[in-house]
């Protein structure tokens, strides 16, 4: 197979698209919102002195689900991981659909990592805070 093969192979508008790029941050948003809403409703209904444990369990389960989804996304994108056709770096400035696919794959992969870090950040307060005070 010649070196130029990939860019001949990929058809326009196929491969990684913008929806895949924002998938992981959307998981982060939903996780963030669900944790906040769950804890807020629990504390409002149970009172300020209440134990946070029921909500904490929920938050840990949600965090597990979110990390699993992001992990799955990361694994899927990991398979794309490919360097730029132009200089074998992460600059992705070649003008083919294949390069665009690789570029968006890289952006999506790194956003997955950022979203994973974001999800863990959001879960930390639930580890440390035990009541609704």
């Amino acid at each position: 197979m010649s070196k130029a093969a990939p860019h001949k192979r990929r058809r326009v508008e196929t491969g990684t698209d913008l929806c895949q790029v924002i998938a992981a941050p959307i998981v982060w948003s939903l996780h963030f919102l669900a944790c906040y809403v769950w804890a807020a409703i629990h504390c409002e209904k149970a009172g300020r002195m209440a134990d946070l444990d029921p909500a904490r369990t929920g938050i840990f389960v949600l965090t597990g689900i979110a990390l699993a989804l992001i992990g799955f996304n990361t694994l899927r994108l990991w398979r794309i991981r490919a360097r730029s056709l132009t200089d074998d770096d992460f600059d992705y400035d070649h003008d083919t659909p294949e390069e665009r696919h690789r570029f968006l794959g890289h952006v999506a992969l790194m956003l997955s990592v950022l979203s994973g870090v974001g999800v863990i950040y959001v879960a930390i307060p639930a580890v440390l805070v035990g009541t609704c005070r």
Binding site: Y36, A39, A40, P125, V129, C132
Partner: peptide, 9 residues
């Protein structure tokens, strides 16, 4: 707001 909410933000 409860401290857990503050923690998230």
């Amino acid at each position: 707001l409860p401290s857990i909410s503050l923690g998230f933000f």
